[in-house]
Design a binder for these strands. Structure first.
Length: 201
DNA sequence: AGCGTGATCTTT
DNA sequence: AAGATCACGCTG
């Protein structure tokens, strides 16, 4: 059928976390809401977090109630609450029982913008989902979404053409104090919907 | 550059 | 039980 896009399947997510952080750039996060409302955003900025050897990762000291979902199989959502205000959305990576996830830091709105504008209280497109807390707000993602699968219909990631190597930028991760030096942030160079972290490098 | 806001984790 | 930390966003 024309216009019907197949969601990415499990195998896509079965790769090392850092590689997944890069492969997700340009792909489209989809949430199917009640009443035929579709929310879509192109992934333009990600960060990799690994349970082993990465002190910035919630799971670096082992499994707890909060970070438990990071140990699940690839392709599930890890959502957590922070700073008393914000939900952060991650896609779980690495095999089951191994902690890893890709934080989605910024999306470019593609569908459902009026819903997003209302939730965000702003109309500027580049301000709707240009940050990890903003995008969960815009897409109404909270702790109830923790553990949801990307293969169950409600949430999915749509395929899109692979980006050329030169379109992808790399930098240190934003807003962390430990393991600052690791260059595990990936983004689409020059995209206007990036987070406040940095726009080009 | 400063602060709100509250859960989680560490230290007493 | 108390204190520090925090993968942020907004105001100024």
């Amino acid at each position: 059928m024309k216009g019907f896009v197949q969601p990415l399947e499990k195998q896509f997510f079965e790769c090392p976390t850092l590689l997944l952080a890069e492969k997700l750039l340009g792909k489209i996060l989809v949430r199917r809401m009640p009443d035929d409302l579709m929310l879509k955003g192109r992934i333009v900025e990600t960060e990799a977090y690994l349970g082993y050897g990465d002190e910035a990762c919630h799971a670096w000291r082992g499994k707890t109630e909060r970070n438990g979902m990071m140990f699940a199989e690839p392709g599930r959502l890890y959502v957590y609450f922070t700073y008393g205000n914000h939900y952060m959305l991650n896609i779980v990576s690495e095999p089951e029982h191994t902690a890893g996830a890709v934080l989605l830091r910024a999306l470019e709105p593609l569908e459902g913008e009026s819903f997003m504008r209302e939730r965000r209280g702003t109309s500027l497109a580049t301000n709707l989902m240009s940050g990890p807390g903003k995008l969960t707000r815009a897409m109404a993602i909270d702790l109830g979404c923790n553990g949801r699968s990307l293969f169950g219909g409600e949430f999915s990631v749509e395929d899109a053409p692979e980006l050329p190597e030169e379109a992808i930028g790399t930098s240190a991760r934003v807003g962390i104090t430990r393991s600052r030096d690791l260059p595990w942030r990936k983004f689409i160079i020059g995209n206007p919907h990036l987070s406040r972290g940095r726009v080009s490098g």
